[in-house]
Computed example of a mutant assay.
Amino acid sequence: MKKIYLTLISLFIICVGAGILYLTVYRQAKMELPRDITMETAWGDEYRFSEMKPKVRLLEFIYTNCPDICPNTTFQMKKVRDKLENQHVFGNKVEFITITIDPKRDTAEKLQAYAKTFGVDKGDQGWIFLRGSEDDTKKLADTFNFQYRDPGNGMIIHTTSTYLLDENNHVIKQFGMGEKGFRQQDVYEAIMNKIK
């Protein structure tokens, strides 16, 4: 009887370990920006994922009507950007990408206003605010297992993850969102470690 319990416990531990390995390593290694998507910047310029130069990238999904976690995360990213600018790596080695998951409501004007709130203007290099078709947005979000849905009131329920990508646009690390989930120092150190 003890052998059966030990065997069952061992199988359980192996299954849990395999599940954790799949979720943290294998699935994350498969996450990358699809090259066949073209989006539009907040200022109306075309942005082709197939023409991206090799850089370390920090990617977030937001919607401009979000009352809390989206703007808080973008604010935290602004602080990380300031540190990276002090190291003279922002723009030339590191790029931030913010993508709206609500392209129907988030017009170019709304996305511009959102970007300007965090000190990003049209001519600024290194931080791109994007909107695309609903289909392309969904395809992109699905690539990162980023889930979202609108219950009908415009307050979108969504996953709370941001993604650090290497120069080949593969996810190498995930961070949370908001003040507690997105730890500036951890993100900054992960970026600096990657570009050294």
Rank of each mutant, 00 (worst) to 15 (best):
F12M: 07
F12K: 00
F12T: 06
I13H: 13
I13W: 15
I13Q: 03
I14N: 01
I14E: 00
I14Y: 04
C15N: 08
V16Q: 02
V16T: 06
V16P: 00
G17V: 01
G17A: 13
G19V: 13
G19Q: 02
I20C: 05
I20S: 04
L21R: 11
L21D: 01
Y22C: 01
L23G: 02
T24I: 10
V25Q: 14
V25D: 12
V25W: 09
V25I: 15
Y26R: 10
Y26P: 05
Y26S: 09
Y26N: 11
R27L: 14
R27D: 14
R27W: 00
R27E: 13
R27V: 13
R27I: 12
Q28V: 15
Q28Y: 00
Q28T: 14
Q28D: 11
A29L: 09
A29H: 12
A29M: 10
A29Q: 13
A29W: 06
M31S: 07
M31E: 11
M31G: 09
M31V: 08
E32K: 15
E32L: 09
E32V: 02
E32Q: 14
L33C: 08
L33P: 10
P34R: 01
R35Y: 06
R35D: 14
D36C: 09
D36S: 14
D36V: 06
I37A: 05
T38I: 09
M39W: 02
T41M: 08
A42K: 04
W43V: 02
G44T: 04
G44V: 05
G44K: 04
D45S: 14
D45Q: 14
E46Y: 05
Y47W: 02
Y47E: 13
R48C: 06
R48F: 09
R48S: 14
R48H: 11
F49Y: 04
S50T: 09
E51I: 10
E51C: 05
M52T: 07
M52R: 15
M52Q: 14
M52C: 01
K53H: 00
K53A: 05
P54Y: 00
P54K: 04
P54S: 05
P54T: 13
P54F: 00
P54R: 03
K55S: 02
K55R: 15
K55N: 05
K55C: 02
V56Q: 02
V56A: 06
V56G: 00
R57F: 04
R57G: 03
R57D: 01
R57I: 00
R57Y: 07
